[in-house]
């Protein structure tokens, strides 16, 4: 099977390691990976910010860029959620493309039935279920099943795990004070988990959480699910 990688604009530009890790995981499982170079952004940022015209144009563009892909995979619960749940309403003619789009853990566990991806890791991880993977996309426990199957991963429970980290795209800038207060609560929870890294399946939330950990001078690292699975 060939899969087309939608790396997301954010990972492409600010967290390329996440994209590289996703490629490693997919190829190790014997999948052929394509990267349609025309891809840019799915339009989620614009949609959430209230810019429906731009979001609609980008949704249509996403549909055209990935029109020929058999399966589209993205290392982002948020972008996958937007593509699957909003894009078909914005641009009905690309609904079939949206329906073939999967978040990485969703593709591996639900679609391919794979839990053990052949990676190893050494350390104590805590998993933060990002809001859109949890409540928009409903990936369920797919990410945790993948993590549990990695030899060397010790999973620590994250208190109040389903509470939003406070990123929220433009929210993190427009409502910086509340976003920071939400982040502080999340960082406290991460610290009390005793983990040496926090794992999630959205590079955007991890940018925010990781940036907060670093600012605090915390030794805890923020790692993407793909990066753990690529190890």
């Amino acid at each position: 099977m060939r899969v087309a990688l939608f790396v997301t604009c954010l990972a492409d530009t600010l967290a390329p390691g996440v994209g590289r890790a996703a490629v490693t995981v997919l190829e190790r499982l014997g999948l052929g990976v394509d990267f349609p170079r025309e891809q840019t952004c799915c339009g989620q940022l614009h949609w959430n910010a209230g810019y429906a015209d731009e979001a609609t144009a980008l949704a249509a563009r996403f549909g055209e860029v990935f029109a020929d892909a058999e399966v589209i995979v993205t290392p982002s619960g948020s972008c996958a959620g937007h593509v699957r749940e909003h894009v078909p309403t914005l641009v009905p003619r690309v609904a079939h493309v949206a329906a073939r789009t999967f978040e990485l853990s969703q593709l591996l566990v639900e679609r391919l039935g794979v839990e053990d991806v052949g990676s190893t890791y050494a350390g104590r991880l805590t998993y933060h279920p990002t809001c859109h993977s949890l409540r928009l996309l409903r990936v369920g426990d797919a990410p945790e099943r993948l993590l549990r199957a990695v030899p060397g991963v010790e999973l620590a429970e994250l208190p109040e795990a389903t509470e939003c980290c406070g990123f929220g795209g433009m929210f993190s800038v427009k409502n910086a004070a509340v976003s920071s207060a939400m982040l502080a609560a999340k960082l406290d929870a991460i610290a009390s988990s005793g983990a040496d890294a926090v794992c999630a399946c959205d590079a955007s939330c991890l940018l925010h959480i990781g940036g907060g950990l670093e600012r605090r001078g915390s030794p805890v690292r923020a790692v993407h699910l793909a990066e753990v699975l690529a190890g």
Binding site: A177, S179, S180, R215
Partner: peptide, 13 residues
């Protein structure tokens, strides 16, 4: 500025 109040930001690599 709002971002920088509580978070670091990686540069474009």
């Amino acid at each position: 500025a709002g971002w920088g109040s509580s978070r670091e930001l990686p540069a474009v690599p």
